[in-house]
Design a protein around this nucleic acid. Structure first.
Lengths: 336, 336
DNA sequence: ACAAAATAGTTAAGCGCTTTCTTTAATTAT
DNA sequence: ATAATTAAAGAAAGCGCTTAACTATTTTGT
């Protein structure tokens, strides 16, 4: 049978209250007593149940993390830094991949509420804001990662997507590109990148039109597919800006398969600076997010709000950084 | 305040026992009563606490997953399939990256025990078998993934590493390579790959020596580093077999930086067939593991053993598959 | 040496559920 | 219409812990 606090108390010849005190290092007691209890705990292989203690008003020491897809390198990389930081602070994390699907978001949110997680870190879109409102009004700590909540009173940590997009456009524009296609995801952060791009683009005096952008979900396959679409549309652009590395690499693969040379025939940019950008050939020019910093920050914020040391509602924005590698280059004369 | 079963009971004008019954769809009751309770639950935004119910002998519906590193694509990919399967069956999963460190393994194991996870899926090495024994003797369900427990009574699901290594060797040997370096990790599964390799190598009449293999941890950086070491040792081999894709890609990067052409100057193989193998250029020849199947299987096994429908102790082995891409080629005459 | 103050340890209620028994109400049979 | 049977709902104990309030034991002061 499972060994409980009663077993320990009995064997150590004390009350369960005393055992509880040694577990939590609270209250006063003789050193000898403490040691005796400790050794009995050891001897019996006793693991205090966090369920039981959570039930008595303590925390569950568990965080819920909702990401679109943990197998997407960007999210697995940030999940790793979150996990590390959380563990450092004594919390575990339950991860859920939502695929940005409303049903899954709803289901997982409910599940995690029932599990009484101490707080949520949310990197999934949550287009149904009511879901978020529900947890907000139950005053369960909540921090958005990678995007804003789209409602008051929720803090978020993210890169400055707009300026990342802006930088991307500038880079391409400086290289002489003007006919550019964008690949976008249907989430706010991606759209911000496109807006930023647009801003820079127009400030160079060009006209941005919506048909320059194609929206799809993040995956290698979709990257390829979109490239195909772009090709089919005829009128190949001289550069493509994908709103994340996964899509960009998909384009890269597709290009290779069709004999389109990158960057000779086509310049390509991604966003995120995941492992994929560093391992591809040519190396992917991309906009880096400070993944580690963001991961740490987001757990620090959630922990502070769990402990009521934080009740703000900020937008914490990090600066993106252009990582210039080898998929972009000056537009050669003959293509102008 | 948090809404509890009492609030619901009171508002619905029934006892908490009745509410409990509707929550769990047990016992008999009038349809009208059930509906009334249900609607009150809805109205009050009631989320039954799983902590409380777990305390009364039910399950926590939570699995503990220990992997070396969730940001390693192999593990994030398999974690995704595990997560999906688990959710399908109503369980959540807490993920922990151990970095194969003894302290972390110990810490996380203890933590998860305290959280009363229903079972463990372990893909980390656990060189200290006592840790595993502890959970085994507490009769907490446990399945090894990617490797064996190294003790009786524990079932494991993995690829047949030995035969994967064997296949890798054969492939290289058939291409005429004979001077081959291996990059190994310090975990049993990797060593099995090397043993398999060795077996094939020797069966071709060659002599395998231990100085052909260099051991390191899985990371891009280490792949590069090892390549450097190999170069420094002089006497460059004509092929390298890395025991996982991450290391192989590291080698690929390193090679590129030093102007070593792959596969012209050096053939290269990985293991796992992660996204990295498909996106690299040239595409990495590697040994594929059936990630999805394995992920599903491992949760099915753990669930069955949680429900006492399974108490076996099998080694469930999947067949690896050679994915021939472009980093390996026939050893050219002049290099023989 | 004795009261006052501080320290050590205990009692018991309560956290939010589940579940076994009981009791009460509704059906069916006679 | 009434007893026998079955269905519906409730009472209460218990899960493993925390904690406030309390009692017993020491220690300190004078």
């Amino acid at each position: 049978m499972k060994v409980t606090i009663y077993d320990v108390a009995e064997k150590a010849g004390v009350s369960i209250a005393t055992v509880s005190k040694v577990i939590n290092s609270t209250g006063n007691m003789r050193q000898a007593t403490r040691e005796r209890v400790l050794s009995v705990m050891e001897e019996l292989n006793y693991y205090p149940s966090m369920m039981a203690s959570a039930l008595t008003g303590k925390k569950t020491e568990t965080l819920g993390l909702l990401v679109p897809d943990i197998s997407n390198p960007f999210f697995s990389e940030i999940a790793r830094t979150i996990e590390d930081r959380a563990h450092e602070k004594g919390l575990s994390v339950i991860m859920c991949s939502t695929d940005e699907s409303l049903e899954k978001e709803k289901k997982y949110l409910e599940l995690l509420r029932r599990k009484q997680v101490d707080g949520f870190i949310i990197a999934s879109s949550f287009n149904d804001k009511n879901l978020l409102k529900g947890i907000k009004s139950a005053s369960i700590p909540l921090v958005m990662l990678t995007q804003e909540a789209g409602m008051a009173g929720v803090t978020s940590v993210a890169v400055d997507d707009f300026s990342g997009g802006y930088d991307a456009a500038n880079h391409l524009l400086e290289l002489g590109h003007q006919k550019i296609a964008l690949i976008n995801e249907n989430r706010l952060s991606s759209k911000m990148r496109v807006y930023g791009f647009r801003e820079a683009y127009e400030s160079h005096g060009y006209t941005f039109t919506d048909d320059m952008v194609i929206t799809t979900n993040a995956s290698l396959a979709n990257g390829k597919k979109v490239l195909q679409t772009i090709i089919n549309n005829g009128n190949l652009p001289s550069a493509i800006f994908a709103c994340n590395d996964l899509l960009a690499i998909g384009v890269l693969q597709g290009a290779r398969e069709r004999g389109i040379n990158i960057p000779e025939d086509l310049s390509l940019m991604g966003f995120d600076n995941t492992i994929l950008a560093t391992t591809s050939v040519p190396g992917l020019t991309t906009i880096a997010q400070p993944i580690e910093e963001m991961g740490k920050k987001v757990v620090d914020v959630i922990i502070d709000s769990i402990n009521n040391k934080y009740s703000g509602s900020e937008r914490i924005l990090y600066n993106p950084e252009l990582m210039q590698r080898d998929t972009t280059r000056v537009l050669s004369e003959e293509r102008v």
